[in-house]
Design a protein around this nucleic acid. Structure first.
Length: 536
RNA sequence: GGCGAUGUAGCUCAGCUGGUUAGAGCAUACGGCUCAUAUCCGUAGUGUCCGGGGUUCAAGUCCCUGCAUCGCCA
């Protein structure tokens, strides 16, 4: 099966934060997982660079829009490699081929009669880049930006979205998996019970020039959402590149809940108008709060991925984000929670298991995979749990239930730790007569570690690679050929390494909420210059 | 105001189509082991399963209602 997993293209009006990292880590994990499952996968992320807000942000920092978007887009691009995120394509909406594709699509939709010219007057909020209704206003202000909208009358081009409303309702109803989790599907369906309005897809150049000119009227540029969504097509070479036919059928978009409407409503109707099949699935995730407070610039609690990597390493961050959040729901981030997971799940449970197992193979078996003798019940029990784990893990990963998938793995890690205590290899090692038993126990342990490693590749690629190398596994990870019990070959070399996850000390003992800001700023102060551009 | 979701041990949460004495992890206390990253293993718990009413032989699990929190829409 072919897979085309995408993140949203991130709007370059802000720097990369925890939320961006979460989306992109999920996509990377899914991409790695599907590859290991033997599928043909393409993974795309990128940046969204047109619109009012970008033009204004550029003006504020005394840059041309071009300079500004180049700078911020580069920050996004450079955020991913340290998190072990490896997209196949990083797209920018200012790329020449994207601009051409958007223009050709606009022309196509126009030719089909789905775009018309009309006058519209209303209250326009620059922050939202849209017209607001009277009822939305709070004390005459935009509820989000707390500024008064401007009354504007202008002529614009509209996309006949309403024409496809009935079709869209039918498609969502007939395809229960189209929008996931179900709560968001219900939300979209309930929104669609009301008549859909047509979508204004242009902005007059008198008001905004930082956009893609309409091919049929150069006094207008394209509305930023109409431009942005098309990235999913441009990135695989629509209309006639070979990758388009190869991947579009497998398109699965991943988004945060704030951009549900453009993806669940605008986008499928645009595709329908173009005569294309809709994407296969839309996966919607929730928000990360920080210490139970909404993350925002004004509160000053924005979490930067780079700081977390510095704190405990990329793999630990990836594990935490996937393990801690039930996909689809909101969750709360805190340094304490991150460190707790790192210490208890990674250092104590997994890291220590690897360490003690490999040390015993080194001490008792001369760093070689021992031959397995006759299996006893406790061996069979662990082996069955480990092979069962891979199957259950795959099932959960396929439906984006990352927290459940990882829980299955950690059940087996706990079981392996118990298995060691129950079989006490250090006692067996004292008695030459129990040589075969010792070998069998350690072989069973190594095999269990091998299967655990297989499941960890998508989530913690660097750690899994270290484990794989330590175990002497040579071939690249692959579920079909490596999920069976007993693949390790006796006498092969085992190479113990440094601890995978050194334990971390908690930064401060249970900081009171009021202390957070002071603490964060003092942390920043402790690392002078790290955010200053161009300073050594 | 309309629609929907959620409310389970100190904390974070599991509990599918109703069925034995309500579970896991973390945190806490005590005990054990020594291969291991002061790690691991065992034992001990505590819960009006938000309140109230109802259906049923049987409800955390279904229905009604109230409260609280959140989301979408208006």
């Amino acid at each position: 099966m072919n897979f085309y997993i995408t993140t949203p293209i991130f709007y370059v009006n802000a720097q990369p934060h925890l939320g961006h990292a979460y989306s992109t880590i999920i996509a990377d994990t899914v991409s790695r997982f599907q590859k290991i499952a033997g599928n043909d996968v393409r993974f795309q992320t990128g940046t969204d660079e047109h619109g009012d807000k970008i033009a204004e942000a550029a003006a504020r920092s005394n840059e041309t829009p071009r300079e500004y978007v180049d700078r911020i887009s580069r920050m996004f691009r450079e955020t991913w490699p340290p998190l072990h995120i490896e997209p196949d394509n990083f797209i920018r909406t200012t790329d020449a081929n994207h601009i051409n594709t958007v223009r050709s699509i606009l022309q196509k939709v126009h030719d089909r009669g789905d775009i018309y010219f009309s006058e519209y007057s209303g209250l326009y909020c620059k922050g939202c880049e849209r017209f607001l209704t009277e009822k939305e206003l709070i004390n005459g202000n935009c509820p989000d930006h707390l500024t008064p909208p401007e009354p504007i009358t202008e002529q614009n081009y509209f996309f006949r979205m309403s024409k496809y409303q009935e079709w869209l309702i039918g498609h969502i109803e007939q395809n229960p998996e189209f929008i996931q989790p179900e709560r968001y599907r219900n939300e979209v369906l309930s929104f669609l019970k009301e008549p859909l309005e047509d979508l204004c897809i242009s902005r007059p150049t008198s008001r905004l020039t930082w956009g893609i000119p309409l091919p049929f009227d150069d006094k207008f540029v394209t509305y930023v959402w109409f431009d942005a969504l098309i990235n999913y097509l441009t990135g695989i070479g629509y209309p006639d590149g070979p990758d388009f036919a190869r991947y579009w059928q497998g398109a699965e978009h991943l988004i945060a809940k704030d951009i549900l409407k453009p993806h669940a409503i605008y986008w499928p109707t645009m595709l329908k108008s173009l005569g294309l099949e809709p994407y296969r699935k839309l996966h919607v995730h929730g928000y990360w709060n920080v210490n139970d407070t909404k993350m925002s610039k004004s509160i000053g609690n924005v979490v930067r991925p780079a700081d977390l990597i510095e704190e405990c390493g990329a793999d630990s961050v990836r594990y935490f984000l996937l393990r801690e959040m039930s996909f689809g729901l909101d969750s709360s981030f805190s340094d304490d929670a991150l460190i707790n997971r790192h210490n208890s799940d990674l250092a104590n449970d997994l890291g220590n298991l690897v360490s003690r197992s490999l040390t015993m193979v080194k001490n008792f078996c001369d760093c070689k995979v021992p031959p397995a003798g006759a299996m006893r019940d406790s061996d069979r029990e662990l082996a069955a749990a480990a092979t069962g784990m891979v199957a259950e893990y795959r099932k959960q990963m396929e439906v984006f239930a990352f927290h459940r998938a990882l829980r299955e793995v950690w059940k087996v890690i706990a079981m392996a730790n118990r298995y060691i205590v129950n079989n006490a290899p250090w006692e067996l090692a004292k008695e030459p007569a129990s040589r075969e038993r010792l070998d069998t126990v350690l072989y069973t342990l190594l095999e269990t570690l091998r299967l655990i490693t297989l499941t960890l590749h998508p989530v913690m690629p660097a750690t899994a690679t270290k484990m794989k190398d330590a175990l002497g596994v040579e071939s690249p990870p692959d579920f079909d050929s490596q999920a069976q019990w007993g693949r390790l070959v006796p006498a092969a070399a085992v190479t113990p390494g440094a601890p995978l996850f050194p334990r971390l000390k908690k930064a401060t003992p249970a900081p009171a909420p009021a202390d957070n800001r002071a603490r964060q700023s003092s942390q920043k102060a402790a690392r002078p210059g790290r955010t200053e551009r161009g300073k050594p």
